[in-house]
Nucleic acid binder design. Structure first.
Lengths: 140, 140
DNA sequence: CGGCATCCGAGTAGATACTG
DNA sequence: CAGTATCTACTCGGATGCCG
């Protein structure tokens, strides 16, 4: 892993202060972490957004097969929330049988670009997490 | 919001494929999204990591006051998990009264650098999410 | 096909009290 | 001070059945 310099740490702290100016107040009407991130960085949401970034258009059951252990209920809930927040769009085709296509909006693509940085980090460092967990188990 | 070009979308799809090569398999022993991200991108985890990125060292009750609505139980659980995965370190001082200091490890700092990109995005675009949500409410 | 409605069980969060 | 213990409440996820 790349070592982090003290300078970088200071830079990061400044960014946090700038972004999170309300860091010390508790009368926050709308916290971006609690209210935006908690939905968008949910395990299922991440997978949905990634799959829609990979396959530009997906139907409900296709998506469900890719995310191979999500239930109808949970998938449809997440899709509704993600649609509500503007990350994905839902196109209904009134055919028989009915067809529904999900895809990312531009807003969703914008989010995905940032999200990808994080998931790439996780993929790259998953080995470290695994061994950290094992060590921690032993030490207790 | 910046418009996303088709080229960028293709680039992103390639990145996803590279990172998420198992995108179509279902016999995944350890999924970085499900197993790493779901802990590290949890609402409370994000807040803990951000506060520890801003204040290099924090004691239990200080941290709890900053994250102004987390219970003892949940905070101590998350701290243990984050410690177990290697993001934070816990230093115990056997004084009276006892003192425990939490801080980010280098691994935690590495994660924070990427995480910050995402939270900055969320802070910048929270207005869009709010209005998207309002529009969606009306349309239903 | 693409969901929604319903029910149920398990896990998780919160409040409070207590302790080394 | 830094948690743990306990209990309760509630949310969440999974399974099933149904319908346009």
């Amino acid at each position: 892993m790349e070592t982090i310099t003290e300078n970088q740490k200071i830079k990061v702290a400044k960014k946090i202060k700038k972004m999170f100016g309300h860091v010390d107040r508790r009368n926050i009407e709308f916290c971006p972490i609690r209210d935006v991130m908690s939905l968008a960085s949910d395990k299922w949401s991440i997978l949905i957004i990634l799959y829609l970034g990979y396959y530009p258009v997906l139907r409900f059951n296709k998506l469900r097969k890719h995310i191979y252990d999500i239930s109808n209920k949970v998938l449809s809930e997440r899709l509704k929330m993600l649609e509500g927040d503007g990350y994905i769009s839902r196109k209904l085709f009134a055919e028989v049988p009915i067809r529904v296509e999900y895809s990312l909006t531009d807003f969703g693509h914008s989010y995905l670009q940032k999200l990808l940085e994080l998931t790439e980090w996780a993929e790259k460092h998953k080995g470290t997490v695994i061994s950290n967990r094992a060590d921690y188990q032993k030490s207790t």
